[in-house]
Design a protein around this nucleic acid. Structure first.
Length: 481
RNA sequence: UCCUUCUUAGCUCAGUCGGUUAGAGCACAUGACUGUUAAUCAUGGGGUCCCUGGUUCGAGCCCAGGAGAGGGAGCCA
């Protein structure tokens, strides 16, 4: 029986068998307490063995980290701290864990140390809680889209296009790296390669997502994404999971409404279905923040923060308005921004953080960016006298503490304008002929966005390093587990 | 990739001005204890001071190079 079920039913008097891993053992002369966790829930079950019930050898092998099956009667606990406990009748040790060598000790460990033992860290309270929340969010995402008429479109992992320019790509090849077939000019002849052309791991499913939306109207992708950027930060992974809805007949405003409704739904779902885990993670975060300076501590506890997000409207403003706010800010006037502020710049982390964490103190949707700092496929805005330059129908959703969690746009649906933009940014039209053809055959207004799954998990769990919200992180120089 | 800080016991860290045998807490082992829950108390074992080279009578400490990790930045989700 799973511990989650045992604790929920609390069927006192029944005989049950618990299988799991020993967290702690406390021995005294007459009685031994064994705390067992099976990962089904944050809570342990306490097994109580009267002296003499277990033979000496078994008792010795039950140490922190060992895997056991314990059979006994569920009784009301005599001690405080738990309602029920297991009165032990017999125990079987599946696997021992030499206490001199087992790295996970019954004490606090740093997250940095746990990253070095990625194969064992799911056995800690913190990581099992994160993994359960991660699962629940993934489920909520599929449920949200399914309940709202979206179809799950499986876009390719291996791709022949590098058109989006979202980042450096990982090459996929079966050619011999030491002795590849060469063209006459000495370059590698990819016609000899597995696919007969250069291929890479996908950096985004968006372009294919648009093809799906031009047939099924509402689609989303949810899959792994790969970027070979040499970025070493707490917010980037080389392999991460991304959710990308794409919807026909949606314009920018519909896209913004979808992004807000979607994020609120999945956060609410996690609150309703992972409450115990979130309570634990909130406590962990409070402990961690005790070591920080007062001004660096978050104003709201984790659960309060999540409730605040789902109960309040996101702020929506244009890039041009954001620049005006930054220009009139005290911080700008005192010259405290490291990077200069002016219309046309790409907003820096410090600018985004100022807007989200100091000025508005809630999620912000920024729209209508200058076209020169955004991707080629974004729809051009009408030119306006109020705006200094040409903008596109882009939107970024910024979350407190995380920064950019969503990037999206209404797509350019006019063939001539899109082809023109391809030329401007140097994308050969023949390389994405299939993408451009959607604008020649039954084009339609459409919009979509991408949300980094790990960034969402970070926000919900309160973790501050992205390596701690994915079971097996892939970052530059690291692929051990 | 750039800036910056760090690397000493299984873990988290201290280590004075360069000086003799490198310390603490936790973890672990042994013992005690009538119900503990980060149990408690006593005792004990445990070190490639990140690596390589240099300076010096003498280096955990100073210098040079390298590796790894953290924080910040860029790129972005």
């Amino acid at each position: 029986m799973q511990i989650k079920q045992i604790l929920a039913e609390a069927a006192v008097g029944s005989e049950i068998t618990v299988k799991g891993w020993v967290r702690t053992k406390r021995e005294s002369k007459n009685v031994t307490f064994i705390n067992i966790n099976d990962g089904s829930v944050i809570h342990n079950i306490q097994a109580v063995a009267e002296a003499g019930v277990l033979n000496e050898e078994t008792q010795k092998l039950i140490t922190t980290g060992a895997c056991v099956a314990i059979t006994g009667t569920l009784i009301e606990s005599q001690g405080s701290g738990q309602k029920v406990e297991l009165q032990v009748k017999s125990a079987l040790v599946y696997g021992t864990a030499d206490p001199e060598k087992y790295p996970l000790q019954p004490k606090k460990h740093s997250l940095e140390f746990l990253r070095e033992i990625g194969h064992l860290r799911p056995r800690t309270n913190t990581f099992s809680a994160i993994l359960r929340v991660r699962h629940t969010l993934a489920y909520a995402i599929h449920k949200y889209f399914n309940d709202n008429g979206f179809f799950y479109l499986h876009t390719p992992i291996i791709t022949g296009s590098d058109a989006e320019g979202a980042g450096e790509m990982f090459r996929v090849t079966t050619l011999d790296p030491k002795n590849p077939p060469l063209n006459e000019d000495g370059s590698v002849n990819y016609k000899e390669d597995f696919f007969g052309r250069e291929t890479n791991l996908t950096v985004s499913g968006q372009l294919e997502g648009e093809l799906g939306a031009m047939a099924l109207s509402k689609v989303y992708t949810f899959g792994p994404t790969f970027r070979a950027e040499n970025s070493n930060t707490a917010r980037h992974l080389a392999e991460f999971w991304m959710i990308e809805p794409e919807v026909a007949f949606y314009e920018l405003e519909d896209n913004m409404a979808l992004a807000e409704d979607f994020t609120k739904y999945v956060i609410r779902y996690a609150l309703e279905n992972c409450y115990d885990d979130l309570v634990f993670l909130e406590g962990r975060l409070k402990e961690e923040e005790k070591n920080k300076k007062q001004e660096e501590r978050s104003e709201l506890a984790l659960i309060e923060k999540l409730k605040f997000v789902i109960d309040n409207d996101y702020v929506k403003l244009t890039y041009t308005e954001a620049i005006q706010i930054l220009l009139s800010s005290k911080r700008h006037k005192e010259g405290k921004f490291q990077y200069p502020v002016a219309w046309g710049i790409d907003l820096q982390s410090e600018h985004e953080r100022y807007l989200v964490e100091k000025h508005f103190k809630k999620p912000v949707i920024l729209t209508n960016y200058p076209k020169d700092i955004k991707a080629f496929y974004m729809k051009l805005d009408e030119v306006s006298d109020d705006v200094p330059g040409q903008t596109v129908r882009a939107m970024d959703v910024l979350f407190p503490g995380i920064g950019e969690i969503i990037g999206g746009s209404q797509r350019e649906d006019n063939y001539e304008k899109l082809a023109q933009r391809c030329q401007e940014v140097g994308i050969p039209i023949e390389s994405i002929w299939w993408y451009l053809e959607t604008r020649q055959f039954g084009t339609a207004p459409h919009a979509g966005f991408g949300i980094g799954f790990e960034r969402l998990v970070m926000f919900v769990t309160g973790m501050t390093n992205i390596r701690d919200v994915i079971p097996f992180p892939r970052t530059p120089k690291t692929a051990e587990f």
